[in-house]
Amino acid sequence: MTSVPAMLRRGLLPLLLLSAAMPLAILGLASIGSDWFFPALLPGTFSLASWRNVVGTGALLGPALLASAALALATGLAAMVFGAFAGSAIAAATGWRRVIGAGAAFLPVAAPPVALATGLHATLLGAGLGSSIVGVFVAHVVPACGYTTLYFLGIFTVREGGHEDAARTLGAGRFDVLRRVTIPMMHRELLEALLLGAIVSWGQVALTLVAGGGSVRTLPLEVIDYLVAGQDQLAATGSLLLVIPPLAAFGLMRLALRNVELVLP
């Protein structure tokens, strides 16, 4: 006799496999197929035409991919550093300071993007950063910092500072403690925060559109434009490009963390 959990496990595994594999399979087909009308299960014609829009002359998707990647990386790094400091500071606070700190960290996460975007754009324009990639970076950093601050707030709330205290007792300076104790110990958390910040930037639409004045072209913006224009094949190719790099980053992170105790296999 098999137990109920075992049966559930056996039933859920194929579903999880489907949820993981389906996006790549379907977007892959849609990106090389056209004449794909009901009730056909497969496209009527196949062509690599949409992939020429990734590299060829006048290609829009390739440059947008690069812009998105640069923004995501820069945003992830900035948000990781900021979040670690802000999260630890708020976690160390007590009483009403802590409540205000946590509330503030929630603000950029809970605010709808348009609420952020318009005011931010006006400010950035005033500062001479409007409609530029730097302005878009600043705009992306705002919600990304909210997420990473919340993330580190959670981590530092449960983390005991015993090792740092020990190092300090042994005479280590503040910088040494950070470099030799905290950072090596928080390897995994820092990388996860980097990825979290990068993903927030990677998926942004409204902030990029408004803060970039439409001139800064990232991958999600190209995909939206193609969808609105009914160019489903190009939209699928763009969507596929949206899926692959984060998946690869995810895989790389797992490799890099081989030696660290991991929740994931």
Binding site: R98, I100, A111, A115
Partner: peptide, 28 residues
């Protein structure tokens, strides 16, 4: 790490949102 930075951290992370809210409030 920074021990007394909670207020500063809160200020930095919230300011852009508050600017956005102020803009929307004025525009509304």
């Amino acid at each position: 790490m920074i021990r007394r930075g909670a207020g500063l951290a809160a200020f930095l992370v919230a300011t852009p949102v508050l600017i956005g809210i102020a803009y929307s409030a004025l525009a509304s």
